[in-house]
Design a protein around this nucleic acid. Structure first.
Ligand code: DCP
Ligand code: MG
Ligand code: MG
Length: 827
DNA sequence: CATGGCAGGTAA
DNA sequence: TTACCTGC
């Protein structure tokens, strides 16, 4: 198994152009799209509004203006902003269900994937895109004299360090012209540094196209960061939001870092970042630069030390690893405080609910992605002697059956708990559970008899295409490994599968996992075949169609090692996926009692249950025979009481629930405990005494109250200082310091081969021609830019054009701004 | 007792 | 493999 992450060579540190696309207030946008009347109003998305109005997990921008933030309770938000509309996350099976946001995220990612092969989803609402290839192509087009970048393509773009974006563009050309400010870049004298700004600018144009397409296809708005690596792209993205994009130019990194709190860097926002600040007595990212790599490695560890050393310099070598689908499917629920699960029937109930959700999502996943999870992980937190102890156990997963999974999860917890059942009882847990989680992962592609051979050939054909299209990589040996006797069929399969590829592409069935790895991808970039005016989108689409493979591993010429990347095998559609053994709803029913009783008695509980009695699982289970896998659960006792409050997912404004047993009014969030109390009452007197005495002793022996969490196996970690050093490359930057047009041969010191520039007719050393052409490219950008500025007087139309480009009907801002404002001033 | 429900990555 | 960290 390739260890997920891979890294580029440091020599290519500035070569890539990376985008980070992050949706604006994503869950809110999802809700606004579903309920368009919400647009423009302040809204927030909450889950579980019963307690203090629920917890806010997303806030739209109008609401942010009024000071509403994530982490607030719904009630606080109402206080802060009385007009706010609180939208609830759907509750399914008495727990928050995030399906609609996952689906929306996938919809967006699908658009991105179509445009950019090398995509890594980083969360439900963001993705990294490596667009180096496309940028390089456009650069070549520019250098051939077919210039195509217009200022309007850089609408909504910002550059860190420039209050007016036009200044940035202007400076790019003057920078290349006079070259003097390459001085402050005491970095390697790489041509990459010179190309940096132009590449980023082209990246911004591409980002704009991508964002426009996302808006067009999905209706959602997003922001983007444009930089030479993932860390900086992510950082940049957050600087201007919403619906904006931000370039982080090389030369603005250090100025930015000098006042940027360390915690703003992804990965340093937690304890590690805190430790860093304390141990090194620093506050800002820029403060890191004074430490040698060796010292950082000594104080932390080798890996972190090197990483920090580079980060301080704005360098991050992590590849964009192509990944569209998640590696795991999980769900979990907390049972805080007095909601802790203390009865076995309650535990069974919740494991059943969690397993049910997992099963449903897995069934969708198997159809969509043609893969099966091979492992299940059960996580839980139990309170032991007043301390929260978290554990997780993994088990091999062979069946997708709800009951089997639930029973398995139950057994896992039981077997890994020293004292599972309270002594003297058969239903009371010795250690209340405060958290339950079930997740599945370790997916493997389904190999049916039918498609195994097909895929074999598919992969084979793809490899062949790759070899043909990229470079002179042979791997002939591997090719010849294919059984000879099947050679005849080969062409047939190739054609057949190619067709398949195309149709499957459209439905985005791309599996990222596959075996083919190429050692070195040459950065030839000498392909002059693609003609000028072909659109980015057309090219992207054509690329996809040409090879059924996810072109990810080829996508970047600067990605020298593709060991961690994938040549995705396309998934063959399987019309009868459901007919397999996957959805066996057998007669065995571990939790039948729980489910049955819930159905039977739900009407006797607090009246208004919007329950799921008609769900196929339950009705089916009801009609099947009982197999009592868990003897201890067989006896009656009204355990539905123990989770009754969760059967009322929407208690509206009722903070109180009436207890059926004693008629008392009980705080809703105390109800589970209250019912556990009744549950305890039903136990024998003797058991109860025991129970109480233990509770007492617990209270007595519990000192002031610790909030610490511990794990079942305690061990102390110590640091491992390892040192190594690395010489820094020193290359002169003098050769970039010419005046006027750079690189032009003004003296005859030459035995060098030269070339006549198609732009200016000057003779330029052949090896410098690209660089020289960059200069012209930059000039042209400026000229175009200035043209735009010239017509400022009547620019209203242009401004309108630009703002209308996104088709927003909303508050028509910017209307009366002059053209400078068009480039958006930063705050 | 109170963000909660996710998901990915790493050390040991 | 498990516990923990980090971030959305
Ligand atoms: N602690 C968190 C953070 C975020 N989310 C969800 C809700 C968000 O809408 C979505 C994306 O998270 P972001 O951090 O990207 O925040 P938003 O997209 O909401 O806002 P922004 O415009 O700042 O990106 O993930 C969540 O459930 N819990
Ligand atoms: Mg977002
Ligand atoms: Mg995000």
């Amino acid at each position: 198994m390739a260890s997920t992450k891979s890294f580029i060579n440091i020599a290519n540190k500035y070569d890539r152009v990376i985008l980070l696309i992050d949706m604006d207030c994503f869950y809110c946008q999802v809700e606004e799209k579903l309920e368009p009347e919400l647009k423009g109003k302040p809204i927030a998305v909450v889950q579980y509004n019963a307690w203090r109005g629920g917890g806010i997990i997303a806030v739209n921008y109008p609401a942010r203006e009024q000071g509403v933030t994530r982490h607030m309770r719904g009630d606080e938000a109402k206080e802060q902003c009385p007009d706010i509309v609180l939208v609830k996350v759907p509750s399914v099976r008495e727990k928050a269900d995030l399906t609609k946001y996952r689906e929306a995220g996938k919809e967006v990612a699908t658009v991105l994937q179509k445009l950019t092969p090398l995509l890594e989803r980083a969360s439900v609402d963001e993705a990294y895109l490596d667009i180096t290839d496309e940028v390089v192509k456009r650069l070549e087009v520019m250098n051939q004299g077919q210039f195509n970048l217009k200022p309007s393509e850089l609408n909504s773009t910002y550059a860190v360090g420039y209050s007016n974006f036009g200044d940035y563009v202007q400076e790019i050309s003057s920078c290349i012209e006079s070259d003097t400010d390459e001085f402050d870049c005491n970095d390697d004298d790489l041509p990459a540094v010179k190309k940096s700004n132009i590449k980023l600018l082209l990246g911004a144009a591409i980002a704009n196209e991508i964002r426009a397409k996302v808006k067009e296809d999905t209706g959602y708005e997003c922001s983007a960061g444009i930089a030479h690596n993932k860390i900086l792209a992510k950082l940049a993205c957050g600087i201007n939001k919403p619906n904006k994009q931000t370039i982080l130019p090389l030369k603005q990194i250090q100025p930015l870092f000098s006042t940027l709190p360390l915690g703003k860097i992804k990965g340093l926002g937690g304890k590690f970042g805190e430790d860093l600040c304390t141990l090194l007595n620093i506050k800002f990212v820029g403060d890191l630069i004074k430490f040698s790599e060796a010292e950082l490695q000594r104080r932390f560890d080798e890996k972190n030390g090197s990483w920090l050393y580079l980060i301080a310099r704005g360098i991050d070598l992590e590849c964009v690893t192509p990944r569209f689908y998640s590696k795991s499917i999980g769900c979990c629920k907390k049972f805080p405080g007095r909601n802790a699960i203390s009865g076995i029937p309650t535990l069974e109930h919740w494991l059943g609910e969690l397993a049910k959700e997992i099963c449903e999502r897995m069934e969708k996943d198997v159809i969509e992605n043609n893969r099966k999870a091979k492992q299940m992980v059960v996580s839980y937190i139990q309170e032991i002697n007043g301390q929260d102890v978290s554990s997780s156990r993994s088990v091999p997963l062979s069946s997708y059956d709800l009951e089997a999974m639930a029973k398995c999860a139950f057994d896992v917890i039981r077997k890994n708990t020293d004292l599972f059942i309270k002594p003297g009882s058969d239903k009371v847990l010795n250690n209340p559970l405060k958290f339950l989680g079930v997740s599945v992962g370790k997916f493997e592609t389904i190999e049916t008899n039918k498609n195994t051979i097909q895929k074999l050939f598919m992969n084979h054909c793809k490899k062949k295409e790759q070899e043909g299209s990229t470079a002179e990589q042979k791997i002939v040996t591997e090719k010849e490994k294919v059984p000879e006797q099947k050679v005849e069929k080969k062409s047939f399969f190739a054609n057949y599968l190619k067709k398949k590829d195309e149709s499957v592409q459209g439905s985005n069935n791309i599996a990222e996992e596959s075996a083919a790895t190429l050692e070195e991808v040459k950065s030839s970039e000498s392909n002059a075949d693609c003609k000028e005016s072909k659109s980015f989108f057309l090219k992207a689409i054509r690329k996809q169609q040409n090879s059924g493979v996810n072109p990810g591993e080829m996508a970047s010429d600067v990605q020298q090692k593709s060991d961690g990347s994938s040549s995705a095998a396309l998934v063959v559609e399987e019309p009868q996926a459901g007919s397999n053994t996957t959805s066996v709803k057998g007669p065995k029913s571990f939790f039948l009692n729980a489910i049955k009783r819930k159905s039977n008695e739900s009407d006797t509980k607090t009246s208004e249950h919007p329950t799921t009695e008609d769900s196929p699982c339950e009705s089916q289970v009801q009609n099947t025979k009982i197999l009592e896998a868990m003897p201890s659960t067989s006896s009656a006792s009204n355990y539905t009481d123990t989770y009754a409050e969760f059967l009322v997912p929407e208690p509206k404004e009722q903070d109180f629930t009436t207890c059926d047993k004693c008629g008392k009014k009980v705080l809703a969030y105390d109800f589970q405990t209250h019912n556990d109390f009744h549950f305890a009452l039903e136990l024998s007197q003797e058991q109860r005494e025991k129970f109480r005495s233990e509770v007492k002793s617990k209270i007595i022996t519990t000192p002031p109250r610790k909030k610490s969490k511990i794990s079942s196996s305690q061990l102390n970690t110590s640091k491992k200082p390892i040192t190594s050093s690395q010489p820094a490359a020193e290359i002169s930057i003098a050769k970039f310091l010419s005046k006027e047009q750079p690189n032009v041969n003004d003296s005859d010191e030459t035995t060098q081969p030269t070339e006549k520039c198609i732009e200016c007719g000057n003779l330029v050393p052949t090896e410098k021609i690209t660089e020289h052409l960059d200069y012209h490219a930059a000039r042209k950008i400026q000229v175009e830019w200035n043209k735009q500025l010239m017509t400022e007087g009547k620019q209203q139309s242009v401004g309108g054009q630009i703002t209308v480009a996104t088709k927003t009907t909303g508050p028509a801002k910017v209307k009366t701004k002059n053209i400078k404002m068009f480039f958006a001033t930063q705050t």
